[in-house]
Design a protein around this nucleic acid. Structure first.
Lengths: 346, 346
DNA sequence: TTGTAGGCGTTATCAG
DNA sequence: CTGATAACGCCTACAA
């Protein structure tokens, strides 16, 4: 009833051979008689032997484990990324240790500490909103620890990262709204200390400029929280205060887009005919809200998978640090649904 | 530029003392002079010493890591559970290793194997849909490995598990619909091999019976997939084929509920006035669909947190196996929104 | 108050 | 073809 795992020594004792022989037999090393191999493997099976990964880690100074640090697990985008990470890691024989920072810097730092203690082979990181200074990461990089950043990437020289083309995504979304005949387009932006927010805002304003629509500062509003409630309030206020009223909303995330959409409906405007709405991320619910929400899709699974491939190649020295492109930019895709397409009169 | 971690030996060498002294000084053991303690700690700081958790694990045959096996990460409910797990584990000094089975039995088994290899201290499991036979779990339990099941729990004697009161939740939801004046209530049920589905169906039929409404087999329909598309199709068909038509839908999950709701709207019926809808799980999107979806909330965070508390207490022998209630049942809460409440005529 | 030795499970190295 | 030994980093019983 105890949970005693059989070890190599146990097999050795039973078979009256040395543990080195057992070790070699189990790994099909050359120079071991087939007879011995057979016996050893049989006994291993019988004793239900399982190699002790901890001992192996100690020996090799490698844990075959990677650490993932993200702001939140309960978040459609991040959970998708995790899924990609887990898939690739598993298929390449690595474990995934997960921590969420809940957007707290202290938590981020202490997570790094425990992971270092656990002799993690490398890090996958999307940092917290509180993080504005990156020395705790650059120190690690200097010491030679592999880190691949994704989504939220720091301004560190040569930090490897995987992101999506936020600029192009935002540009396309804005262009699409313009082509639908909307011209007073509000951008509900994200926190301006995140690069993704800045890129999306840039895409928005460039698209306006390229289509001859003046950029108006009062139409670019920062939503720090990114919740639907916040966006709802802001939108309601904008609809009342601005004149002429806005005729479209491009939100930096889907939840905010839905909040805006609901505010428009509540104020008596028809979406999409009177007001168009586009979100960003393509969360699950985009297709089930009414009207269904157009959104810029960023493939979280692929972000996670790509980041993990790079990290593991790096860990396994399959690639030299110098050969890695410091920045992998994945394409986004605008998914046009009902919320942004004006219905033709029949 | 190498990633050489300082060890106890390094500190010892620098200070010309033995490594045991260092070890003891670092842990504030009694019988070490304050002077030595101070010096050791200083040097530890200076060399940026970090205890090697791997070596510790080997020594103590304890890894301070728990393994989580779930069907899918990209799933609102499960991600909430993970969040609860991670929170408690972190606060008690444990790491979380995560794998998803993608509902595959083979993956479930191989995950267990790698986790065992990694000398995991215990398991938190919600098994895959493919799993119909539980010997791979009961074997572990017999060997003394702590396992706490949640959400999907196996029919193993004395297996510890944390679940929500599916029966009561379904009962309340159905009763609520009845009280709103609905009487031809369809139940879109889940796969019948999962206990949660069975419990929810039982709650549904008992509520009908207790309120004098006959249970009609044709109103209990199994949705094996649980997707909105599937529910949409089924609902459309039911609305056409049944006479008199159903006047309410209680779905075993929210996605199906939304599918049903959209089918009703597409068929020209008003929700909630002509047809009421209630879901189960209280996914994020419940409040943002139109009309907002009434749903039975199951607190995933609390499920994860509770399961983890039990597991860690068990691991740390704070509780005897005999003293653990084999089954912890958390309450559900019916959240009434618009989709099920008939609007009063003014 | 401090040091020595042994061992957790594994494998690389050197000898037979 | 196989065995003995040492080492990965840490802790602890025993000794001094």
């Amino acid at each position: 009833m105890k949970l005693e795992q059989a070890t190599i020594k146990d097999i050795a004792r039973e078979l009256q051979v040395s543990s080195s022989t057992v070790s070699r037999a189990l790994k099909d090393y050359p120079g071991i008689s087939d007879e011995t191999k057979r016996k050893v493997k049989e006994m291993a099976e019988k004793l239900n032997y399982r190699p002790n990964a901890i001992a192996l880690s100690l020996r090799k100074s490698r844990s075959f484990t990677i650490g993932v640090i993200i702001p939140e697990v309960v978040h459609f985008f991040f959970s998708t990324v995790i899924s990609g990470i887990e898939e690739v890691a598993f298929s390449r024989g690595y474990n995934v240790i997960l921590t969420q920072t809940n957007e707290k810097l202290t938590r981020e730092k202490s997570s790094i500490d425990t992971m270092l203690s656990n002799q993690i082979d490398g890090f996958l990181v999307s940092y917290s909103k509180e993080t504005t200074e990156f020395s705790h990461f650059s120190k690690l990089l200097d010491q030679g620890y592999p880190i691949v950043f994704f989504d939220r990437v720091p301004e560190i020289q040569n930090a490897i990262h995987v992101i999506v083309d936020d600029y192009a995504g935002a540009y396309e979304a804005t262009k699409h709204l313009i082509q639908q005949g909307f011209s007073r387009i509000v951008h509900l932006a994200g926190p301006s200390n995140l690069k993704i927010s800045k890129e999306r805002s840039r895409g928005y304003s460039d698209a306006l400029r390229d289509h001859g629509i003046p950029f108006l500062p009062e139409l670019l509003v920062e939503c720090t929280q990114g919740t639907d409630e916040e966006a709802h309030k802001i939108t309601t206020k904008l609809l009342q205060s601005l004149s002429p009223r806005p005729d479209a909303f491009f939100a930096n995330n889907d939840l905010a887009a839905v909040g805006a959409m609901m505010a428009c409906k509540a104020a008596g405007y028809a979406v999409p005919n009177e007001i168009g709405v586009v979100g960003f991320s393509n969360w699950q619910f985009c297709s089930i809200v009414d009207p269904s929400l157009s959104s810029v899709a960023q493939n979280g699974f692929r972000i996670g998978a790509t980041a993990t491939e790079i990290l593991l190649d790096w860990i396994e020295k399959k690639i030299n640090l110098e050969d890695i492109q410091t920045s992998v930019v994945l394409a986004t895709e605008l998914l046009v649904r009902k919320s942004s397409v004006r219905i033709q009169n029949t």
